[in-house]
Amino acid sequence: MFETAIIAGAKIVLTLITLLTLVVLTVYTERRVSAFVQDRVGPNRVGPKGLLQAVADVVKLLMKEDIVPKNANKPIHDLAPMISIGVAMSTFAVIPIGSTMTLFGRQIDMMIADVNIGILYILALTSMGVYGITLAGWSSNNKYSLLGGLRSSAQLISYELSMGVSIIGVLLISGSLELDEIVGKQAATLWGGIPAWNVFLQPVAFVTFVVAAFAETNRLPFDLPEAEPELVGGYHTEYSGLKFGLFMLSEYVNMIVASAIIVTLFLGGYAFPWGEQFGLSGNSLAVAEVLTFCVKTGLVMFFIIMIRWTLPRFRYDQLMRLGWKVMLPIALANLVVTASILALMNWA
């Protein structure tokens, strides 16, 4: 019991450090990519190639004064960023980044918590995340913040449905709520040698899920809660210093987590199908799996960043129309078709 606690603690610390480092890298990548898309150079002064720019920004944020508006609800104003970051970070707990590794004579699962209802856990936490944003908007005593918070909750309600429904398609195929097992199912190959990733089995669900993930992480083209031209800064207008930094952090952690979930559910997760061909086993295989996972997640994150600098923001009514009139029916139709085909296959 004590031993498992220590192992879990080590994993948590390691994951937190990795996530924070990754966020710094992601911010840097985002700024560089955006600059490149716009024919600029981007940050290239602090450290080699500007890599330390994000670190410098973090230090700057830490040293800034923490301002709370006069009539703000102080406890909630303080609590909101904590909810945001806490939820964003803890979502990563159930994502498997590899199968098992043998360290010091012990088999160690490459995820923090092997929950057998991993997907439900993710869904529950992502919908918790909106509390941070809504509370931040509400407690700031600022009309723009409030509008941002309200938009965020409306957006979540509209897109969580299609997200859930598109996940069900995946669940029907893999027959398990456990992320490890979903990944295991995708390790097989279909006829013709293509891997049995859920993108190929559930392309429609993949598209709806990705769109919903964009909406849930408040990334462009669905970043209405913080639409600068309309709402000043959106829900974090009244935040400064460290608390603003936490919102920023949680936004990027959310992005990482969303990419990791997309990879796990649809893009084969950590599965490294050529382990035997390369003669890998045990720990070397685990390293290959982790690398596979990281590369895939990185590519998805690059895709998310590119989308941000490609598409303009949706109008609010367009967002709602897309959510309720397009995404939800498509996801539902996909679910019905998948279920029927599976039922026919079982019956035959």
Binding site: V33, F36, V37, Q38, D39, R40, V41, M306, W309, T310
Partner: peptide
Amino acid sequence: TFMALFRRKIT
């Protein structure tokens, strides 16, 4: 936008 990544920078 992807092609734009490789364009000459004017900075």
